[in-house]
Structures are given as C-alpha cells and as structure tokens.
Design a protein around this nucleic acid. Structure first.
Length: 574
RNA sequence: GACUGAUUAGCUCAGCAGGUAGAGCAUCUGCCUUUUAAGCAGAGGGUCCGGAGUUCGAGCCUCCGAUCAGUCACCA
C-alpha cells in the first residue's frame, strides 16, 4: 500500500498512532488480554436488584460508535457475541490530577474501529440501557482504516454498507458492520454440522477423495485444467467425486460420504460459483426409493435444528420441509404443468413439442436432453414446496441404473425446492457391461457437439467390474440448501469469499521509476497523488506548474516536507 | 453475450432548462457529567468513472470505453 493512496482520514489516523507512541502507549500490544465476559452474558444476566454480580467485569471488542459529551461519554463495544454500551466518565478513568487518559487518549486518540479492552462495573442508565461503567481501558489494536458507519434507529438502518461488490471484496468489513451477515454463516455451519451428525449417527464414514484428478467425471460440466510439473501431466479439478466414492463402496465400505468442494468452469450468476460444495453419499444395498426417504428425513431435521420448525420463510414463500414431500415422475410433472403427455413421444415429436412450448433447441439435443429442457423451462421454477421428481430419461443419466420396470428411464430423482434443484440421486448403475455402453453413448453425444458429455473412465470401469453392490447415491448442493435455509437471494451471500472479477489496476509506473529520475522517495508519493502515474507524463509537464502543484499538496496534506526549489524540479523533469 | 439501469465527498445519496456542486453521517476545532441515528457552533474535504465530441459554457446532451447491479441467454 502506497502512502499516496491515503485519504485525509487515513492520514489523521496515522498521526494519532504516532501520538500514542509519544505517550508511551503501544497500540499493538503483544500480551494476552484476559476478559471475564462477553457482551451477551451481561445483557442477558444483569438484574437491577442484584448488580453486585457484575461489579467487576472485563471485556474486549471493537468500538462501533462514540458519543462524547464533555466529561462523560458513551461508546458501543462490539464483540463476537453482540454489542454493549460503555460509559466513560473522566474522573473514573483518571482518578488523580492527570486527566490525559480521558481528555487525550479516549477523546482524541480513540476512533471507531479500534479494538480495546475495558474493565469496570455494570449499571443501567437513566434511559434504561445496560452499560459498562469503564474504570480502565486498554488499546489492543488501533484501526487506521475508517469503517463505513452504519447507524440504526428503531429498526431503520441509515447509511448502510450495501454495495454488493464492495461487501464481497471486503468481507471482513461486511461482517463487522452489517448485522445479520455473521448469522448467515453461523447457520451454514450449523447446517453442515446437523447433516454430519445425522450421517454419523447412521454409521456412515466421512472420507476424503482426490480433488486433482487425471480424468474428470461424475457429472456433466466443463472442468478447470491444471498441470503437474513432475508428472508432466494435465490434471483437472474435480467436478464431482462420485466415481471415487463408488470405488470405496466396491472396496467394502457400506456407507461413505464427503463434503466436497467441486469446481466447474462455467457461468457465474446468483446460483453458480465456480467452486461450490456438494455432499455426496453412497450407501450399499439400498435404492433410490430408500434414498428419498433419507433425504426427507435429513432435510426436515436440518430445518428443525436451524429454525426449530419445519416451516420457514424464503423470499415471498413459506416453505415447509415436513415429511412426506410430494413425489412426481418427470412425465407426470410435465403433463401437470403443460397438459401434454410426452411419455410415448419419439425424438421428432419431442422436438416439435419443445418448439411449441417455446423451449430453445439445437441439433446436439437428443431425446433425453429435450425432455430435460422441457422440464427446466416449464416446471422447475414453479415447484416451490420441496418435491421429488423421479424417473429420468436414460440418455442424460449415464451413471444411473435402468428403471426396474419402465424402458428408457433410469432410477433417478431430484429434489426441487423454491424452484431450484437441491439434490440429485440414483440407484447407482453397477452393471459394468451396461456402464461401459453408457460411456460409449456419451462419446457419441460428445461427437454430436455436447460439450458436457462424460468421459470414459477406464479405471472406474475396472473397479466396478470387480463387483459393486447395489447402491443408492446422493449429491446434495450445500450452497443451494444454505441459500434456502438462510433466505439468501444469492450464492454469494452464503460463501464467505465468492469468486469475483479481478479489480482493475491502472498500469502506472513504479515508484522506483520516478526515483531513477532523481526524485526523492517522499516526493514520489506526492507526485503520484497529484495525478502523474507515469514517468512519461511528468516529462511533458511545465516544471513551474508541477512545483506549485506538489508544494500545494505538501501544505494541504500537512506532510511537513521541505519544499524543493524550482531548479531542483527542472532537474527531475529533464 | 444481450437488454435495462447505475457510477457525484471516507459512507449513504441529492442535484438542473446545459451556467462550473449539495445534505446527513464520518473527519477536524470548540462547548456539553447518563446519551443513544446524542446535541449545539464552526472548519476542511470532490480530476461529478475514463476518453472524445456538440456548445460561449457539460456532472447533466451525443459517441466510445471501463466497472457494478438486475433480467435474460449459457450453465444438471
């Protein structure tokens, strides 16, 4: 960070830093600060009749507001559990004659954003607010970058820090300043904990499988590609972990699951981030009917763990996760929403129907893809309450087992909720001959132009040739589920650090380039501040004008530098 | 990628028929011993996203570009 980028307020804060040092105060002390309470404990347990209980408390946190009134002042301290008001009184802070700690350190050298530790006693103000009467305070970390100040009165928020771009790029500030952001992430962790507990209680084993893979598979998506130097080999970041987990089922584990970061090199929007989290589960000797029951039970439990209720508000809707959820086959739900029975149609008829329904089509679409497109276009967004859609066309499910009774379909289901898929599951295909044929069909699709057709994975085939028990498999989108469970409108709201476009940096000359011209480093900053980012620009400027500009800035910014003479400047510029 | 909208002080945002910029908070200087979006008095702070054009004159109009947002498209 270059000095010339500092704004006035940042300069002021750096000055207060040096004043603290002059007073012998270390603004970044090394030693532990022991504190007795969190703000939450005090606010919840303080009883007016019995204030002695909180006669001597200490706590630490960040100053979020200050109201200074002569010899007494109020401030708000924010710790990890919430906020509490502090009361500073001059003669309590400074019992002797020397009032420096109140008049100077507290009033002049403390800022919003500073982290302090305080000790004192708890009381209730005339306005009825439980507060800590501070007897001693200590600076634990001085903040030299001003926070955006968000104020609130009667539930109304003023000057909110709302620009999504700024919030996501600067998540630390977002978490400090915007109430409710932390809760979303705490809920997300509760969600995964709840799910993990549920799976562990059933005896399934949490495992880890490779993220760097020589072949990507298990889903239809474009991958991120990287390179391993020692092996001199292309590797891919996984798009799914399905094929590895199934190998573990072959290996004799009856139930395995993984919370997996997967990576897909595709579009970004409020439902898609290039890296996202999926929980995949495989259980031997089960089928997709059994898995539907498990999903219902698990998600219902998560809703209760998070909200104490199966019902919750998501956007405009109340969603109820109470079992049992509705179940439709894909053909049924399409007929339900379009009035058209497509179950007997061939590819030509489907193409015609799709066009009639206003579904965009192209030549690479085969029968299965067309059905999926019709579903996606006409049904998915209308399914708000959790609903299972079952029995998908075989062409788009190369890893799922053929339906036990209906030709052309597979035993697959998705759960749709709030108009979006939240999970996908199959009775897993364990017939190695059929599996090989399905991979070969995918290759044909790829030749037809389907960029997402799956690759043939010889090692995986080898594994299931050894023999995989009948298995039910599930992939559940954790981010999507977290969005629903936290009523978030965008995936970026449930990811601490969502992928962002890189910030554009102006291509400017390095400070060293200016110094080579003979300009002292102190003045390089000033020149850059004056708007000259490239040395070439400086060579064209009138030296007298430059002299005036930078001397003016020196004065304006109170830099305290000794102004150069006009002759010196001419020498720089020549 | 398409369309629509946005970009003005550290933050949130005004601004007019095109006449050279304003509020609140934040900052700085005072005052104020229980306030709470504290208050009062004063001050500083802006290449009005960048570039070009029209004009006597552009924050405002036109064109080009950048970035962000929303919608759509793409995307299990």
């Amino acid at each position: 960070m270059n000095e010339n980028n500092l704004n006035e307020q940042e300069i002021v804060r750096r000055e207060t830093l040096s004043k603290l040092y002059e007073l012998g105060i270390n603004p970044y002390p090394a030693e532990e600060f022991k504190f007795s309470h969190y703000s939450f404990d005090i606010l919840n347990n303080f009883i007016d009749e019995n204030p002695e209980k909180f006669n001597n408390v200490s706590l630490a946190g960040r100053i979020m507001s200050r109201r200074i009134m002569g010899n007494a002042s109020f401030a708000e301290l924010q710790d990890s559990s919430g906020r509490i008001q502090l009361y500073f009184k001059r003669d309590s802070i400074c019992e002797g004659e020397d009032k420096t700690w109140y008049n100077t350190v507290f009033k002049k050298l403390l800022d919003i954003g500073d982290i302090i530790g305080v000790s004192g006693y708890v009381f209730r103000t005339q306005m009825g607010e439980i507060s800590v009467h501070v007897k001693e305070f200590k600076i634990l970390s001085k903040s030299i970058k001003p926070l955006p100040i968000v104020k609130e009165k009667e539930g109304h928020i003023y000057d909110a820090f709302t620009d999504p771009d700024q919030r996501y790029r600067n998540r630390s500030v977002d978490l400090i300043v915007n109430t409710g952001v932390k809760e979303v992430f705490i809920k997300r962790t509760k969600l995964t904990n709840s799910m993990r507990n549920f799976l562990n209680s059933r005896g399934y084993l949490e495992v880890e499988t490779p993220i760097l893979q020589t072949l990507y598979g298990g889903a239809a998506a474009r991958p991120f590609k990287t390179h391993h130097n020692t092996l001199n080999q292309t590797l891919y970041l996984r798009i799914a972990n399905e094929l590895y987990l199934k190998r573990l089922i072959v290996g004799g584990f009856d139930g395995v699951y993984e919370f997996a970061k997967d990576f897909r090199n595709e579009g970004m929007d409020r439902f898609h981030n290039p890296e996202f989290t999926q929980m995949e589960l495989y259980v031997a000797y089960k089928d997709y009917e059994w898995m539907m029951n498990l999903v219902e039970e698990m998600v219902e439990k998560i809703a209760i763990d998070l909200h104490g209720d199966t019902k919750l508000k998501v956007g405009e809707n109340i969603i109820d996760f109470k079992r049992p959820w509705k179940r439709f086959t894909m053909f049924e739900v399409i007929e339900h929403f379009t009035g058209i029975d497509i179950s007997k149609m061939d590819e030509t008829e489907l193409l015609k129907t799709a066009k009639e329904l206003g579904v965009e089509t192209n030549d690479s679409m085969a029968k299965g893809k067309l059905i999926d497109e019709i579903f996606g276009e006409c049904c998915e967004s209308k399914l708000i309450q959790p609903t299972f859609i079952t029995d998908y066309p075989i062409e788009m499910s190369p890893l799922a087992k053929k339906h036990r009774s209906i030709e052309g379909l597979v035993e697959r289901f998705e759960a749709i909720c709030n108009g979006k898929e939240i999970c996908n599951a199959y009775s897993e295909l364990n017939d190695p001959i059929d599996q090989r044929k399905r991979f070969e069909d995918q290759l044909k699709l790829a030749k037809r132009g389907d960029e997402e057709a799956m690759m043939l994975d010889e090692d995986f085939l080898k594994a299931i040739e050894v023999g995989m028990p009948p298995t039910a498999g599930l992939g559940i989108g954790i981010d999507r589920l977290a969005m629903i469970m936290t009523d978030s409108n965008s995936i970026q709201d449930v990811l601490f650090f969502p992928q962002m476009r890189p910030e554009i940096k102006q291509n400017s000359s390095e400070s060293a380039d200016f110094e080579e011209m003979g300009i002292p480093s102190d003045w390089v900053n000033v020149i850059q501040k004056a708007g000259y980012t490239k040395v070439e620009e400086l060579k064209e400027v009138n030296p007298n004008k430059l002299h005036q500009q930078i001397c003016g800035l020196n004065k304006k910014l109170k830099l305290g530098l000794k102004n150069p003479t006009q002759e010196e400047i001419k020498e720089w510029v020549q």
